[in-house]
């Protein structure tokens, strides 16, 4: 079974990701098992998807607006965001919006061209699960979460920016 990284550990991937084939039609949904469907498929087949057995997830393309899925989040066990290339940073903004604006608390999975060198950034944007691109060694990639021990900015992982945490650690004596 293929593996993913979940909560900084290698884990089995129990989900089947359904992507459209070249002809742009919606892929067939297997009758059982956990599936992650595209936003378009969710919007087209909501009732059928909810009626089937097995858990449901949705994946967003880099061009999808997370606002369009915000009201439906309660139906999903996983939300995934696709990176056609790791240098397409749109997925990072989508992740932060899902976490910080639309309140998504469940698994947020990065899929597509995900390499170890972006794990530190992506986890700070709120991803807690990563389906690495083919050929990447998940076990070896785990150390990338610790590439840096600190960061200046606000993030999903640490909403307080460094300057506020620093100030809390050593309050100014006036």
């Amino acid at each position: 079974m293929a593996v993913i990284i979940k909560n900084r550990q290698v884990a089995n991937n129990t989900w089947q990701l359904l992507r459209a084939g070249g002809e742009q039609t919606l892929p067939a949904v297997p009758p059982t098992g956990d599936v992650i469907v595209s936003l378009a498929q969710w919007q087209a087949q909501k009732e059928a998807l909810l009626a089937r057995g097995g858990r449901l997830g949705v994946w967003l393309a880099n061009t999808d607006d997370p606002a369009n899925v915000a009201a439906d989040l309660k139906h999903f066990a996983v939300v995934a965001v696709d990176f056609p290339h790791f240098t397409d940073g749109r997925g990072s903004s989508i992740a932060r919006l899902l976490r910080e604006r639309y309140g998504w608390q469940g698994e947020l999975r990065a899929i597509g061209d995900v390499i170890r060198d972006v794990l530190f950034y992506l986890s700070r944007c709120g991803f807690d699960a990563f389906e690495l691109k083919t050929g990447e060694d998940a076990q070896a990639a785990l150390s990338a979460f610790d590439d840096f021990s600190e960061a200046y900015q606000t993030s999903v992982e640490r909403p307080q920016p460094l300057f506020r945490r620093r100030a809390a650690a050593s309050p100014v004596v006036s």
Partner: peptide, 13 residues
């Protein structure tokens, strides 16, 4: 400088 260094969301604009 500090805000822009390794900003997680804006590393791949």
């Amino acid at each position: 400088r500090q805000w822009s260094a390794f900003h997680p969301e804006f590393a791949y604009l």
